[in-house]
Design a protein around this nucleic acid. Sequence first.
DNA 1: GGGGCTGATGTTATCGTTCCCGTCGACTGA
DNA 2: TCAGTCGACGGGAACGATAACATCAGCCCC
Lengths: 329, 329
Amino acid sequence: MQDVARAVGVSPMTVSRAFRNDASVSDKTREAVRQAAEAMGYVFDSTASTLRSQRTGFVAVTIPSINNANFAETVRGLSEALKPQGLQILLGTTDYDIQNEEELIEQLLRRRPEAIVVTGGKHTERARRLLENAAIPVIETWDLPDRPLGHVVGFSNAAAVGMTVDHLVAHGATRIAFIGGDADRDTRGTDRRLGFIAAMQRHGLDATRLIAAGAPPISMREGARAMARLLETLPDTQAVICVSDLSAFGSLSECQRRGVAVPGQIAIAGFGDYEIAGTCVPALTTVNPFPHEIGRRAAEVIAAALATPGLPPQRAAITPGLIARDSTG
Amino acid sequence: MQDVARAVGVSPMTVSRAFRNDASVSDKTREAVRQAAEAMGYVFDSTASTLRSQRTGFVAVTIPSINNANFAETVRGLSEALKPQGLQILLGTTDYDIQNEEELIEQLLRRRPEAIVVTGGKHTERARRLLENAAIPVIETWDLPDRPLGHVVGFSNAAAVGMTVDHLVAHGATRIAFIGGDADRDTRGTDRRLGFIAAMQRHGLDATRLIAAGAPPISMREGARAMARLLETLPDTQAVICVSDLSAFGSLSECQRRGVAVPGQIAIAGFGDYEIAGTCVPALTTVNPFPHEIGRRAAEVIAAALATPGLPPQRAAITPGLIARDSTG
DNA sequence: GGGGCTGATGTTATCGTTCCCGTCGACTGA
DNA sequence: TCAGTCGACGGGAACGATAACATCAGCCCC
């Protein structure tokens, strides 16, 4: 910066102001600085700026996996809404493991983000302490935790599956199964399974047709295997709810391979409204949790919290939308 | 750090060393420092460390979209291989636009990454200048550029589609179409279209059956629409190659809706070996570009370049694998 | 004409670490 | 016993920007 200042014939302070689009620099000086910097190949150094100003411009975000269209949409919604605020996303993945999440959160906090967005409401005790001590806005998403750490932008996974159960029951199904992962590592998947059981019991129906299909998150392949097992062990099942559209599509493909009519012999519903659900034949009934909207709303909460330091914890409950399609008649 | 030092009764320098796992600190002192820090809720500040040591621990990565399983796999491969080296990914998306890429690259370079990985080999002139001036290892991926900026870990998109053409021709097809986007924004999609034309001409076949299906990247929906158009305008087409598996699946679903037999009446091939290609019925013939491997290899190049400052530009050409499945007979 | 104001710029100290160099005590071997 | 070596630790300066305050010319208005 000194070199640029020398070249233009001003002080480093003026160069600094020119780069920040600060008010009191004349347009002529600003332009001269920009040109000199461009010619010299100077690129502004955020790391030093960060130290003195105590503003990193980072918002830390943790998601279970980058390879998931739903979480990707949330990140995109966040990113779009944070960019105009001059905030950049620092992304990390937990691989669906709260122990990894703890380590990741510490790594991210070392970078001094101005806010942090985490997926889910379940964390290790140390992770909770780290987040509470960080003295920055914390937003939990994709869940409605009982004991929130700060702000919340999410929905009830259990209620979302409850809507699907209601839909199937309204269409006359009584023998309904649930396909999901076989461990509680994916906490949202677990919530959906519990939501299934609760809704079935609410309808006075048998809630024991549970197919566990391997380590979560289960995908198309595991969905297909689970459907094979379901058709063999519980052939009188009328409908099945899958933990996500990916496993639902896997289930559908298995039915096609076996010549089982969908929805004639068995109805299939998924979760997430992935693009495939609206494209495949028959199109899949699913629930849209509005992942992009979650990201957008989370960014709004961040903006509000940074503008108003003492802002009380916000709680934005999003209502997922049931999308009835051909796969459930 | 001073507070921690006072609490333990040592100098800040010793605390610093303890946190860096530096050699000359006794185990006892190190443990005392860790405990005091944990108790006081102190979290190491990378921003200051970065400034003094001139090491950020960042590797910048640009991808066209976060919502794409192929690029996500590359990021995962990078991330897994960089973590043991103490390097963290700073991710940005270009939305398939080299103007956005230029802006993004500048933003990222301000953070002083130790290396930068970009997707593709086409950039604006200013982006090229920025990358050349940055004096850090640059790795271009997902392409084999003629005029590389530095290191390359990629494959020929044109050759990959050429393999698919050869496969279809070997199965007796002569009237072959290509479905892709209608603009050159997605440079890899464009390369695949050009590769299709070149391969068809090499076989002495008509290379004019090109369906343009909207702004790239085209997805399932656009693939379905494109197939509808193809079936209406060129009904004697025997086989179609889609720019990706997503549009290929959309095409397949359109055939299913119309009762067109795949591969009986028309064969379909895609690109990318997305999970759906192996799951759907019939399973899709596709090409696997080994995206995870690209990420892993790129991380290896980074490690080598950081260890050996004068390292000559590396060029790792990956050979994509054709995966013949039922959709092409 | 002088006090007050405004816009453009400069000076000094500082953000929280780490580099560089130095100190000090303990141990070792002849 | 003592020079030499080594491991553990401390003091001061510096990384590259910016916050806070100071300066100064020009202008306005009574």
